[in-house]
Computed example of a mutant assay.
Amino acid sequence: MSLSGQVILITGAGGGLGGSAALALAKQGAHIILLDKSIPKLEAVYDAIVSEQAPEPVLYPFDLAGANENDYQDLADRIESKYGQLNGLLHSAVEFVAFEPIAITKTKDWGHTLNVNLNAPFLLCRVLLPLLQKSEPASIVFTSDSRARTAPAYSSAYGVSKIALEGLAHILAEELEAEGKIRVNTLIPGPVNSPVRKKSYPAEDKSLLPEMHSLADIYLYLFSPASIGMNGQIIDAHTFKQ
Protein backbone atom coordinates (compact mmCIF):
# COMPACT_ATOMS: atom_id res chain seq x y z
CA MET A 1 0.00 0.00 0.00
CA SER A 2 2.60 2.55 -1.06
CA LEU A 3 1.62 6.16 -0.44
CA SER A 4 4.62 7.59 -2.23
CA GLY A 5 4.08 11.20 -3.22
CA GLN A 6 0.83 11.62 -1.33
CA VAL A 7 0.37 14.65 0.92
CA ILE A 8 -1.69 14.02 4.05
CA LEU A 9 -2.57 16.46 6.82
CA ILE A 10 -3.12 15.01 10.29
CA THR A 11 -4.59 16.94 13.21
CA GLY A 12 -3.61 15.96 16.72
CA ALA A 13 -0.37 14.72 15.20
CA GLY A 14 1.73 15.53 18.26
CA GLY A 15 1.00 12.20 19.89
CA GLY A 16 -1.71 9.66 20.55
CA LEU A 17 -3.50 8.15 17.57
CA GLY A 18 -2.58 11.09 15.34
CA GLY A 19 1.13 10.64 15.94
CA SER A 20 0.89 6.88 15.49
CA ALA A 21 -1.00 7.31 12.22
CA ALA A 22 1.52 9.88 11.00
CA LEU A 23 4.40 7.47 11.52
CA ALA A 24 2.57 4.59 9.82
CA LEU A 25 1.63 6.66 6.77
CA ALA A 26 5.03 8.30 6.48
CA LYS A 27 6.75 4.90 6.50
CA GLN A 28 4.78 4.11 3.34
CA GLY A 29 6.10 7.20 1.58
CA ALA A 30 3.50 9.86 2.39
CA HIS A 31 4.47 13.48 2.97
CA ILE A 32 2.83 14.30 6.29
CA ILE A 33 1.77 17.72 7.52
CA LEU A 34 1.87 17.41 11.30
CA LEU A 35 -0.65 19.75 12.90
CA ASP A 36 -0.85 20.20 16.67
CA LYS A 37 -0.62 23.01 19.22
CA SER A 38 2.32 21.48 21.10
CA ILE A 39 5.67 22.15 19.41
CA PRO A 40 7.66 19.71 21.60
CA LYS A 41 5.21 16.92 20.80
CA LEU A 42 5.34 17.73 17.09
CA GLU A 43 9.13 17.62 17.20
CA ALA A 44 9.06 14.19 18.85
CA VAL A 45 6.89 12.77 16.06
CA TYR A 46 9.04 14.54 13.48
CA ASP A 47 12.14 12.85 14.91
CA ALA A 48 10.42 9.44 14.91
CA ILE A 49 9.49 9.80 11.24
CA VAL A 50 12.92 11.01 10.15
CA SER A 51 14.58 8.18 12.07
CA GLU A 52 12.66 5.75 9.82
CA GLN A 53 14.16 7.47 6.76
CA ALA A 54 10.65 8.39 5.67
CA PRO A 55 9.89 11.61 3.77
CA GLU A 56 10.60 14.62 5.97
CA PRO A 57 7.31 15.86 7.44
CA VAL A 58 6.21 19.45 7.85
CA LEU A 59 5.52 20.82 11.33
CA TYR A 60 2.56 23.17 11.57
CA PRO A 61 1.88 24.45 15.11
CA PHE A 62 -1.81 25.29 15.21
CA ASP A 63 -4.34 25.79 18.01
CA LEU A 64 -7.61 24.35 16.70
CA ALA A 65 -9.62 25.86 19.54
CA GLY A 66 -8.19 29.36 19.33
CA ALA A 67 -7.66 29.81 15.59
CA ASN A 68 -9.93 32.08 13.57
CA GLU A 69 -11.15 31.69 10.01
CA ASN A 70 -8.18 33.64 8.62
CA ASP A 71 -5.79 31.23 10.34
CA TYR A 72 -7.52 28.28 8.69
CA GLN A 73 -7.42 29.94 5.28
CA ASP A 74 -3.74 30.77 5.74
CA LEU A 75 -3.09 27.07 6.41
CA ALA A 76 -4.82 26.13 3.16
CA ASP A 77 -2.90 28.80 1.23
CA ARG A 78 0.43 27.55 2.58
CA ILE A 79 -0.36 23.97 1.60
CA GLU A 80 -1.35 25.04 -1.88
CA SER A 81 1.82 27.10 -2.24
CA LYS A 82 4.08 24.20 -1.19
CA TYR A 83 2.29 21.17 -2.65
CA GLY A 84 -0.42 22.41 -5.01
CA GLN A 85 -2.90 19.83 -3.72
CA LEU A 86 -3.79 17.58 -0.80
CA ASN A 87 -4.41 13.82 -0.97
CA GLY A 88 -5.66 13.12 2.53
CA LEU A 89 -7.03 14.68 5.71
CA LEU A 90 -7.15 12.80 9.01
CA HIS A 91 -9.15 14.41 11.81
CA SER A 92 -7.46 12.87 14.84
CA ALA A 93 -7.33 15.79 17.30
CA VAL A 94 -9.61 15.28 20.27
CA GLU A 95 -10.58 17.17 23.40
CA PHE A 96 -11.86 15.29 26.43
CA VAL A 97 -12.36 17.00 29.78
CA ALA A 98 -14.24 14.50 31.93
CA PHE A 99 -17.28 12.28 32.19
CA GLU A 100 -19.71 14.50 34.05
CA PRO A 101 -23.40 15.52 34.20
CA ILE A 102 -24.56 18.21 31.79
CA ALA A 103 -25.81 20.13 34.84
CA ILE A 104 -22.27 20.86 36.05
CA THR A 105 -20.46 21.16 32.72
CA LYS A 106 -18.66 24.48 32.54
CA THR A 107 -19.41 26.75 29.60
CA LYS A 108 -15.71 27.12 28.88
CA ASP A 109 -15.19 23.34 28.74
CA TRP A 110 -18.28 22.90 26.55
CA GLY A 111 -17.13 25.52 24.05
CA HIS A 112 -13.54 24.33 23.97
CA THR A 113 -14.54 20.71 23.40
CA LEU A 114 -16.92 21.54 20.56
CA ASN A 115 -14.34 23.84 18.98
CA VAL A 116 -11.70 21.10 18.80
CA ASN A 117 -13.93 18.09 18.12
CA LEU A 118 -16.52 19.59 15.77
CA ASN A 119 -15.95 23.17 14.64
CA ALA A 120 -12.31 22.60 13.68
CA PRO A 121 -13.08 19.61 11.42
CA PHE A 122 -15.81 21.67 9.73
CA LEU A 123 -13.50 24.63 9.11
CA LEU A 124 -10.64 22.44 7.91
CA CYS A 125 -12.87 20.61 5.47
CA ARG A 126 -14.29 23.85 4.14
CA VAL A 127 -10.92 25.48 3.41
CA LEU A 128 -9.17 22.29 2.24
CA LEU A 129 -11.85 20.84 -0.06
CA PRO A 130 -10.53 22.75 -3.11
CA LEU A 131 -7.06 21.24 -2.56
CA LEU A 132 -8.46 17.75 -2.00
CA GLN A 133 -10.50 18.01 -5.19
CA LYS A 134 -7.31 18.73 -7.13
CA SER A 135 -5.72 15.41 -6.17
CA GLU A 136 -8.52 13.13 -7.40
CA PRO A 137 -8.92 10.80 -5.66
CA ALA A 138 -8.57 11.94 -2.06
CA SER A 139 -9.57 10.65 1.35
CA ILE A 140 -11.03 12.35 4.43
CA VAL A 141 -11.16 10.31 7.63
CA PHE A 142 -12.97 11.44 10.75
CA THR A 143 -12.33 9.82 14.14
CA SER A 144 -15.29 9.00 16.38
CA ASP A 145 -16.00 6.90 19.47
CA SER A 146 -18.23 3.83 19.71
CA ARG A 147 -19.29 4.60 23.28
CA ALA A 148 -19.98 8.30 22.82
CA ARG A 149 -22.15 7.76 19.75
CA THR A 150 -24.72 5.86 21.87
CA ALA A 151 -25.19 9.03 23.95
CA PRO A 152 -24.74 7.53 27.43
CA ALA A 153 -25.25 9.62 30.55
CA TYR A 154 -22.28 11.78 31.57
CA SER A 155 -20.63 11.78 28.15
CA SER A 156 -21.22 15.55 28.21
CA ALA A 157 -19.68 17.79 25.52
CA TYR A 158 -17.41 15.00 24.30
CA GLY A 159 -20.37 12.74 23.53
CA VAL A 160 -22.33 15.55 21.88
CA SER A 161 -19.35 16.48 19.71
CA LYS A 162 -18.83 12.92 18.48
CA ILE A 163 -22.52 12.44 17.67
CA ALA A 164 -22.48 15.68 15.69
CA LEU A 165 -19.17 14.80 14.03
CA GLU A 166 -20.62 11.60 12.61
CA GLY A 167 -23.50 13.65 11.24
CA LEU A 168 -21.06 16.06 9.62
CA ALA A 169 -19.12 13.18 8.05
CA HIS A 170 -22.30 11.59 6.69
CA ILE A 171 -23.59 14.82 5.17
CA LEU A 172 -20.20 15.60 3.60
CA ALA A 173 -19.94 12.09 2.16
CA GLU A 174 -23.38 12.43 0.59
CA GLU A 175 -22.54 15.83 -0.89
CA LEU A 176 -19.25 14.67 -2.42
CA GLU A 177 -20.33 11.24 -3.63
CA ALA A 178 -21.59 12.33 -7.04
CA GLU A 179 -18.25 13.87 -8.02
CA GLY A 180 -16.40 10.71 -7.03
CA LYS A 181 -13.20 12.60 -6.25
CA ILE A 182 -13.19 12.56 -2.45
CA ARG A 183 -14.22 9.66 -0.21
CA VAL A 184 -15.30 10.44 3.36
CA ASN A 185 -15.35 7.83 6.10
CA THR A 186 -15.41 7.66 9.90
CA LEU A 187 -13.06 5.46 11.91
CA ILE A 188 -13.99 4.02 15.30
CA PRO A 189 -10.60 3.07 16.80
CA GLY A 190 -12.20 1.25 19.74
CA PRO A 191 -10.41 0.79 23.06
CA VAL A 192 -6.66 1.23 22.56
CA ASN A 193 -3.85 2.24 24.88
CA SER A 194 -3.90 5.93 24.02
CA PRO A 195 -3.53 9.14 26.06
CA VAL A 196 -7.26 9.90 25.84
CA ARG A 197 -8.10 6.39 27.03
CA LYS A 198 -5.75 6.81 30.00
CA LYS A 199 -7.43 10.09 30.92
CA SER A 200 -11.00 8.83 30.53
CA TYR A 201 -10.49 5.42 32.20
CA PRO A 202 -7.60 5.91 34.64
CA ALA A 203 -8.29 2.75 36.67
CA GLU A 204 -8.38 0.43 33.66
CA ASP A 205 -5.61 -2.13 33.14
CA LYS A 206 -4.08 -0.75 29.95
CA SER A 207 -1.93 -3.85 29.47
CA LEU A 208 -5.09 -5.60 28.28
CA LEU A 209 -5.66 -3.10 25.46
CA PRO A 210 -4.20 -3.13 21.93
CA GLU A 211 -1.39 -0.64 21.38
CA MET A 212 -1.91 2.33 19.07
CA HIS A 213 0.34 0.91 16.35
CA SER A 214 -2.17 -1.94 15.92
CA LEU A 215 -4.27 0.50 13.87
CA ALA A 216 -1.53 1.10 11.31
CA ASP A 217 -2.99 -1.21 8.66
CA ILE A 218 -6.43 0.38 8.71
CA TYR A 219 -4.98 3.88 8.42
CA LEU A 220 -2.95 2.69 5.43
CA TYR A 221 -6.03 1.13 3.87
CA LEU A 222 -8.18 4.24 4.30
CA PHE A 223 -5.62 6.49 2.63
CA SER A 224 -4.45 4.08 -0.05
CA PRO A 225 -6.08 3.47 -3.46
CA ALA A 226 -7.41 0.18 -2.02
CA SER A 227 -10.24 2.10 -0.31
CA ILE A 228 -11.37 3.98 -3.41
CA GLY A 229 -15.12 3.49 -3.72
CA MET A 230 -15.68 3.26 0.03
CA ASN A 231 -17.64 6.34 1.05
CA GLY A 232 -19.90 7.34 3.92
CA GLN A 233 -18.95 4.34 6.05
CA ILE A 234 -18.49 4.06 9.81
CA ILE A 235 -15.64 1.61 10.29
CA ASP A 236 -14.93 -0.23 13.53
CA ALA A 237 -11.20 -0.93 13.55
CA HIS A 238 -11.59 -4.09 15.59
CA THR A 239 -14.14 -5.78 13.34
CA PHE A 240 -13.35 -4.36 9.90
CA LYS A 241 -11.91 -6.70 7.28
CA GLN A 242 -10.47 -5.45 4.01
Rank of each mutant, 00 (worst) to 15 (best):
S2W: 00
L3C: 01
L3D: 01
S4L: 14
G5I: 12
G5W: 12
Q6V: 00
I8G: 00
A13F: 02
G16E: 06
G16S: 09
G16Y: 11
G18I: 09
S20N: 06
S20F: 08
A21R: 07
L23R: 12
A26H: 01
A30Q: 00
I32M: 06
S38T: 06
S38Y: 01
P40D: 04
K41T: 11
K41H: 12
E43I: 12
A44F: 06
I49V: 13
E56V: 15
V58G: 02
L59K: 04
P61W: 00
D63Y: 03
G66H: 03
N68S: 06
N70M: 14
Y72H: 08
Q73Y: 11
D74F: 01
D74H: 09
D77Q: 11
I79P: 01
I79S: 02
S81C: 14
Y83G: 02
G84F: 12
Q85P: 04
N87I: 00
N87H: 07
F99H: 03
I102R: 01
I104H: 03
K106R: 15
K106W: 02
T107A: 13
H112T: 14
T113H: 11
L114P: 11
N117S: 12
L118Y: 05
A120Q: 08
L124F: 05
L129C: 04
L131S: 07
S139P: 00
I140M: 11
F142R: 03
D145W: 12
R149D: 03
P152A: 00
Y154E: 02
A157T: 04
Y158G: 03
I163A: 05
A169N: 06
H170S: 06
H170M: 01
L172D: 03
L172G: 02
E175Q: 14
A178L: 15
G180D: 10
G180N: 08
G190F: 10
V192I: 15
S194W: 05
V196M: 14
V196W: 09
K199W: 10
S200Q: 13
E204T: 15
K206D: 08
P210V: 13
P210A: 14
E211F: 02
M212S: 07
H213T: 11
Y221C: 10
L222V: 12
F223L: 03
S227N: 12
G229T: 08
M230F: 15
I234F: 15
D236S: 14
T239C: 08
F240S: 05
F240P: 05
K241F: 09
